[in-house]
Amino acid sequence: MRISCPPTVSPCYYGIDTPRKSELIAANYAVDDICRYVKSDTLAYLSLEGLREAVGERSGDYCTSCYTGIYPVEGPKRR
């Protein structure tokens, strides 16, 4: 199985409805564990560098917080 984006390891606070970090499989399990869970022989994600290369010169114009956990502004506090 090949995933055409980097692993989503953090929620998006900017308009995309993603689960909490505790519910994101890539944030909580190793690739081998996920591979077994989805019953695949192999599993690989596109790297963040691969994504940046694929989009070319615009690579600095979009948010990668869900892939890196680094946000341009502080996210909301969880209660």
Rank of each mutant, 00 (worst) to 15 (best):
Y14P: 01
Y45P: 03
G75S: 12
T68A: 09
D61G: 08
C66S: 06
V55G: 11
A26N: 06
C63P: 10
E53P: 01
Y29N: 14
Y45K: 04
K39H: 12
S22M: 06
A30G: 01
I70D: 10
D41S: 02
I3F: 10
M1S: 06
V55N: 11
L43K: 01
E74L: 12
S10V: 00
P11D: 08
E49N: 14
T18V: 12
C5M: 09
V38G: 02
N28A: 07
T18G: 07
C66I: 11
G50V: 03
A26S: 15
N28Y: 06
T64P: 04
E49G: 13
P76G: 07
I70P: 00
K39E: 09
C63K: 06
S4K: 02
C35Q: 15
E53I: 05
G75T: 15
I25V: 14
I25W: 10
E53W: 09
S65R: 09
T64S: 10
R78A: 09
Y71R: 08
G60P: 01
T18E: 06
D61F: 12
E53S: 12
E74V: 12
L46N: 03
R78G: 02
D17I: 01
Y67H: 12
P6E: 01
R52I: 02
L43R: 01
R52K: 15
D41E: 00
Y14G: 01
R36W: 00
Y29I: 03
Y67N: 03
S65K: 08
L46S: 03
R20M: 10
C66P: 09
G69Y: 14
N28C: 05
E57Q: 12
S4V: 03
D32N: 11
P72F: 05
D41Q: 01
A30F: 02
T8F: 14
Y29K: 15
N28I: 02
E23L: 01
K39M: 07
P6H: 05
R36G: 04
D41W: 00
T18Y: 13
S65C: 15
Y67T: 01
Y13E: 07
V9I: 15
I25F: 04
M1G: 03
R58T: 00
L46D: 06
A26D: 06
S40K: 08
V73H: 03
C35M: 14
T18Q: 11
P72L: 04
Y37I: 09
T18M: 13
C35N: 12
R2H: 06
C63G: 07
P6S: 05
P7K: 07
E49Q: 15
I34H: 11
C66N: 12
D61T: 12
C12E: 09
G56N: 03
L51V: 11
